[in-house]
């Protein structure tokens, strides 16, 4: 089956912001509000049958002048038809996008990582806390405006002084 993204555009025309097929990766950009609807359709429709949420990440478009600033990128895969589809949704800085935790269990950790590193919030996530970094960490390091070597050590030089235990 070819041209999944075009078929999807026909079906959900009003929710689709754009499609492209770069280097053979079929991609569709949709409105955040339609994400759950479309993801569920992709998962349950027998023609698509996207049973795997292979990857979830986000791209910070600060240096590219994107507005809204982020794009959350989903990679779906169907083990039955062995086809892949990429879905992208825009996300504003400080805004939030719907969570897919209700559809795929893996979305839980993927979204936590996305929040941890890029600060994209996910609505309806049951446990949105840091996963790779520690709670004391301030900021989101994978954002383009976070300097790469701004360290926030817990102990050792540069660590916040702990109050002496009385």
């Amino acid at each position: 089956m070819q041209e999944l993204h075009l078929k999807l555009k026909e079906k959900f025309g009003e929710d689709v912001l754009g499609v492209h097929n770069q280097h053979g990766d079929e991609t569709i950009v949709i409105k955040p509000a339609a994400l759950i609807k479309i993801a569920q359709f992709l998962r349950d429709d027998s023609e698509y049958d996207m049973d795997f949420l292979m990857d979830l990440s986000a791209v910070d478009g600060l240096k590219l002048g994107w507005n809204p600033r982020f794009q959350v990128v989903y990679h779906f895969f169907s083990s039955k038809h062995t086809h892949r589809l990429r879905i992208k949704i825009p996300a504003a800085d400080g805004g939030s996008v719907p969570s897919l935790t209700g559809l795929w269990a893996i979305a839980n950790w993927f979204e936590r990582e996305c929040w941890d590193l890029l600060g994209v919030k996910f609505d309806g996530h049951p446990n949105l806390k840091r996963i790779l970094l520690y709670e004391e960490f301030v900021g989101h390091p994978l954002r383009k405006d976070y300097p790469i070597n701004k360290r926030q050590p817990l102990i050792g030089p540069g660590a916040p002084k702990k109050e002496a235990v009385k």
Binding site: M54, S57, V59, H75
Partner: peptide, 20 residues
């Protein structure tokens, strides 16, 4: 300019690189 996702079979499963 563009984006690409390439999956290979790593020893533990699908290893994908998404490069923008």
């Amino acid at each position: 300019a563009g984006e690409a996702y390439q999956a290979v079979e790593g020893a533990n499963g699908e290893l994908g690189f998404y490069v923008v």
